[in-house]
Design a protein around this nucleic acid. Structure first.
Lengths: 154, 154
DNA sequence: CGGATCTCAGCTCAACTGACATTT
DNA sequence: CAAATGTCAGTTGAGCTGAGATCC
């Protein structure tokens, strides 16, 4: 994040797809910085939040609920378990499965991450009024809904 | 782009940063599909468009104008030159430099890519009325402007 | 010498693919 | 047997870093 432009970007600078990917880049950066200050990444937040919302679950179920691939879930749970933010115990009634659950420390970490996340939203939307923020999220929601439906990613 | 959700995403599903990164993902996918149907990627379009807009230039100048890193520019120009969409000749007045220029075939390819790009915008914004499209791009432009200024990425 | 240009190798991060062993 | 689960290795793509050679 430094690159100086000799002049201006160019003629694609006002295309919706460009505006979206660029603002998303800033959004991602702000959120990642917030998480990183708590030594976490997006996957960690999503797993912790999903655990709190739905309770203990197998890694496969966690993946389906949080939109994280099974193969990435392995590493993510490893990292969370190493720091004792989640507990991983074998499921006695189905020996293929692990049961992942949130620890007290995990819940505290989740609170921290939610705070960082809220701060990032505010920094992201800083130049917009409350009304405009509402309009923006409304429009984006409709776009996302439309495309999620037609790609089956909902 | 297939993953089925057991239920719904989760509580982060309405956060602006999430909406932005997700819609940006769809935007990126639509554009990449369009470009790919013309055997191109985003970097190719950006270099071709920059060449048409500013005329022949060194790779370093092209990089500054299009926001592409010098190291990525090498491969991009290689690929374009292999297909004779650009011409790369040594600058006699400064032997560090190559001068890259657009060929006739390159200009034709640029027209194709612009068409694909326009189609992708339309598909991306399909669920929105002309008015709403205007509002969305206006809001995104203000966000991008704000954050570009404060990170020096303008 | 400082600074610019070009090239190459490699890295990050999120997302994804394929293969495999085990269990149901 | 087919299907689900967990694990591991590897790939993609855009963006970035670092090192080096050459030249101004």
């Amino acid at each position: 994040m430094e690159s100086p432009s000799e002049t201006t970007p160019a003629r694609w600078g006002s295309l919706p797809s460009w505006l979206l990917t660029q603002t998303a880049g800033h959004a991602h950066r702000l959120v990642a910085e917030g998480f990183s200050s708590a030594h976490a990444r997006g996957y960690h937040y999503r797993v912790l939040a999903t655990l709190e919302e739905y309770g203990p679950a197998s890694q496969a179920a966690l993946g389906r609920r949080s939109g994280i691939h099974l193969s990435d879930m392995v590493a993510t749970v490893n990292e969370l378990a190493d720091r004792e933010l989640v507990e991983r115990v074998p499921d006695l009634s189905d020996r293929r499965r692990n049961i992942i659950s949130l620890t007290a420390a995990g819940k505290r970490q989740l609170r921290r991450l939610e705070k960082r996340l809220a701060e990032a939203q505010d920094e992201l939307l800083a130049p917009l009024s409350p009304d405009e923020r509402q309009r923006l999220t409304g429009l984006l929601s409709r776009l996302l809904d439309h495309h999620d439906r037609r790609t089956g990613t909902g």
